[in-house]
C-alpha cells in the first residue's frame, strides 16, 4: 500500500498529541524490552553481582546494574554440569518432529478440504479447530492416561504426538486458507493439459511452499515453547528446554545466572526464527483471522 496515510494538517492539538504519542511509545518500548535486557545482561553476571541492588529510592544507583565482570560460566555450566545439549536435542526432535508430521498430513488434509465439498464439512472443521483451542491441561488429563497405558509417557514419540494435538489442527486450519487462495483454475489447467489429480496437486505446491515453510517454523515455535506437555508427558526421558530451565529453580539454591543463561538459550533461536517468518507471524498467531 503506497499511500495509506490520509492527509493530516498541523494544529496545536495534533502537535501535542504527537508529543504524547512519542512519549507513550518510548515508555512502552522500555517496558517491553527491559526484561530482555535484564535477562541478557544477568546471564553474564556472577551470582553476587546479579543480586546487587541500589537502596530503595536511590535512582542514581541504577548504575550498579552495569557493575560486573562478564562471565560465560553460566553458559558453560549449562552444558557441563547440566545436560542442556541433550535437552536442546530433545526440544529440536519433539518440536521438529511434530511440525513435520503436522505439516505433511495437515497440508494433504487442508488441500482436500479446500477442494471438495461434502455434508458435515463445517462440523468436521469445527471439530478440528476446537481441538486446537482446547485448554492444554484439559487435553492432557485423558492423554496422560492413554499414553501411560501405551508406555508413551516420558518418551520423545509421546511428546511428538502430544504436540501434534495442537499443531495438526493448526496446520490444517491455516493451510486450508493458503490452498483456498490458489485458484482452482491452475489445477484445472494442469488436468486439461494432461496431468493426473495427484500431479495437479503437486503442481500447486510450489505456490504454497513459502507459506508451508513458514508454518513448519511456527509449529516448531509453538512446540518449542510448550511447558505443560513437556512437564507431564515428557517428564523423565524427554526433558525439553523450558522444563529444564524451570528445574534450575530449586527451593534452597536458585541459580539465577544459569536460569537467565538458559532463558537466553531457549529464547534466542525462536526469536531469530520469528524474525525470519515475520510476514506470516500475524496470520499464524491469529489463526488466519487477520492477514497482514
Amino acid at each position: 500500500m503506497a499511500s495509506r496515510d490520509v492527509v493530516s494538517y498541523d494544529t496545536p492539538l495534533s502537535r501535542a498529541l504527537k508529543v504524547l504519542a512519542g512519549l507513550f511509545l518510548a515508555l512502552y518500548l522500555v517496558w517491553t524490552l527491559l526484561p530482555f535486557f535484564v535477562m541478557f545482561v544477568s546471564s553474564f553476571k556472577d551470582l553476587l553481582e546479579a543480586f546487587k541492588l541500589p537502596a530503595v529510592g536511590d535512582w542514581a544507583g541504577i548504575t550498579v546494574f552495569f557493575e560486573f565482570t562478564p562471565t560465560f560460566k553460566h553458559y558453560t555450566s549449562l552444558f557441563t554440569e547440566n545436560s542442556f545439549g541433550t535437552y536442546i536435542l530433545n526440544s529440536l526432535i519433539a518440536a521438529g518432529g511434530s511440525a513435520v508430521i503436522s505439516v505433511i498430513f495437515g497440508s494433504l488434509a487442508a488441500y482436500s478440504l479446500s477442494r471438495v465439498d461434502f455434508r458435515g464439512k463445517q462440523d468436521l472443521f469445527f471439530w478440528i479447530i476446537s481441538t486446537r483451542m482446547a485448554p492444554v491441561v484439559a487435553v492432557m488429563v485423558p492423554l496422560y492416561a492413554i499414553f501411560r497405558s501405551l508406555d508413551l509417557v516420558g518418551t520423545l514419540p509421546g511428546l511428538i504426538l502430544a504436540y501434534t494435538t495442537f499443531n495438526l489442527p493448526f496446520a490444517i486450519w491455516i493451510l486450508k486458507g493458503f490452498f483456498d487462495n490458489v485458484p482452482f483454475a491452475i489445477e484445472e489447467a494442469q488436468m486439461v493439459d494432461g496431468s493426473t489429480r495427484f500431479q495437479a496437486f503437486r503442481s500447486i505446491l510450489p505456490l504454497v511452499a513459502p507459506g508451508i515453510g513458514a508454518f513448519v517454523v511456527l509449529c516448531i515455535l509453538f512446540a518449542w515453547n510448550d511447558f505443560l506437555f513437556a512437564a507431564i508427558i515428557g517428564s523423565g526421558g524427554a526433558k525439553t528446554l523450558p522444563v529444564a530451565t524451570r528445574e534450575l529453580v530449586q527451593p534452597q539454591n536458585i541459580q539465577w545466572g544459569s536460569i537467565m543463561a538458559a532463558g537466553v538459550v531457549t529464547t534466542a533461536p525462536m526469536m531469530l526464527l520469528g524474525l525470519v517468518i515475520r510476514k506470516y507471524l500475524v496470520t499464524g498467531l491469529t489463526m488466519g483471522a487477520v492477514k497482514e
Binding site: I186, A189, Q190, V192
Partner: peptide, 30 residues
C-alpha cells in the same frame, strides 16, 4: 474420461498460468 484423457485444450478466463514458471515452461507444460 478424466480431463487428461480427453485430448482437449482449454484457455481459461483468467488464463490460469503457472505463476512460478517461465512462459516457455508454461507453454511446454502439456
Amino acid at each position: 474420461l478424466a480431463p487428461k484423457d480427453r485430448d482437449v485444450a482449454m484457455v481459461f478466463e483468467n488464463y490460469a498460468l503457472y505463476p512460478h514458471k517461465t512462459v516457455y515452461e508454461n507453454i511446454a507444460n502439456p
